[in-house]
Amino acid sequence: MSGAVIREIEIAAAHDGVAELIVTLEFDNGGRSLVTLDEVAAGKLLELHGTDDPAELPGTSWTYVRDALAASSGRYAAAAE
């Protein structure tokens, strides 16, 4: 998993009628996995990567996706307090 990178990004329609970002991760062995990010997580992904251009994301480490998802889910914990 250590070498997994973002390979592609794509916009998709979520069940509730909002747009979401689909990130394709490619692993060392060539396998691919899809991760769905909502607007908050996608914004965090760009912020963590230090860019405002999603075209720059392919080729970068999967850890940005992990951290963006962690930050996004953190808002739920904050809301629950």
Binding site: I11, G17, A42
Partner: peptide, 15 residues
Amino acid sequence: IDISFCFAVPSLLFI
């Protein structure tokens, strides 16, 4: 499924 948006709320449609 349709995607809806207004400019008051950010939408990934514009990413």
